[in-house]
């Protein structure tokens, strides 16, 4: 028998704390695979966020720190500047990155900080019980938008990669989705380039991963991935928004 796919070494034995069908685990696996393939596992420091992935350090076996809510990019900046030999990744949700941590994210991008940001967007605050996030779609019902997100009252969904792609600091900006094997393979290709950006000392890179939240969306895992395809991707289209020379 020839092995085609195998769980990467950097995925720990510890079962995740995520709900059944939550794609966080898929994002973890992609990161762990790339760390292994690019021989970065022993150099990596992952800055974990506040949110469902707050315990991420139990699931990916690298050196890790736990940031305050939204501060991952600032903390990552401190680590990278103090110890440039470290390979520094932040792993953040949409509440963490696009709401409370948007200033830290934008400025890290503007500085061209040599860090890699994995930004997992599931359109709501998962851990706190499904509140409205900056990325919640118009009309989407959450626990704090019980009548559906209304643009007049709550504004519009924020598209972070599109914003960052207008800046000079980032060298690689992309959005992928975790809703199908095909998109997951693409997500890994994108994250590889984002890792290249740091490994080759080129600049800031961010990959948004469109994810689901079956529990708070009140759907089965399969239905939740269907919703990504039908409702989320038309608003948050996948693709590479900025690809500087050298990252490919």
């Amino acid at each position: 028998m020839k092995t085609l796919y195998k769980m990467p070494e950097a995925i720990t034995e510890r079962p995740t704390t995520y709900c059944p069908g939550c794609p966080h685990g898929v994002a973890h696996r992609i990161i762990a695979e790339l760390l292994g393939e690019m021989e970065l596992t022993k150099k990596a420091v992952i800055v974990w966020p506040v949110g469902c992935s707050v315990f991420g350090y139990y699931f990916i076996g690298t050196d890790a720190v736990e940031a305050a809510h939204g501060r991952a990019c600032a903390m990552a900046t401190g680590i990278k500047r103090a110890h440039p030999e470290s390979f520094v990744i932040t792993y953040q949700g949409d509440g963490d990155l696009a709401s409370i941590g948007i200033a830290e994210t934008i400025h890290a991008a503007a500085r061209g900080e040599r860090i890699t940001v994995i930004y997992v967007n599931n359109g709501n605050y998962g851990m706190t019980g499904g509140q409205m996030a900056p990325t919640t779609l118009l009309g989407q019902v959450t626990t704090t938008s019980p009548y559906g997100r209304d643009a007049r009252a709550n504004g519009f969904p924020m598209k972070v990669p599109e914003m960052l792609a207008t800046m000079d600091g980032p060298v690689y900006i992309a959005r992928a989705a975790l809703d199908s094997p095909k998109h997951i393979i693409q997500a890994k290709k994108f994250i590889r380039k984002a890792f290249n950006a740091q490994a080759r000392d080129l600049g800031f890179a961010l990959v948004e991963l469109i994810s689901s939240c079956p529990t708070n969306w009140k759907m089965t895992p399969v239905e939740a991935l269907e919703r990504i395809k039908n409702e989320v991707l038309p608003i948050f289209p996948i693709g590479e928004m900025k690809v500087n020379e050298g990252v490919a």
Partner: peptide
């Protein structure tokens, strides 16, 4: 590829 829980090991 789709398994979020490392249950499909290989």
């Amino acid at each position: 590829l789709i398994c979020p829980d490392a249950a499909i090991v290989e």
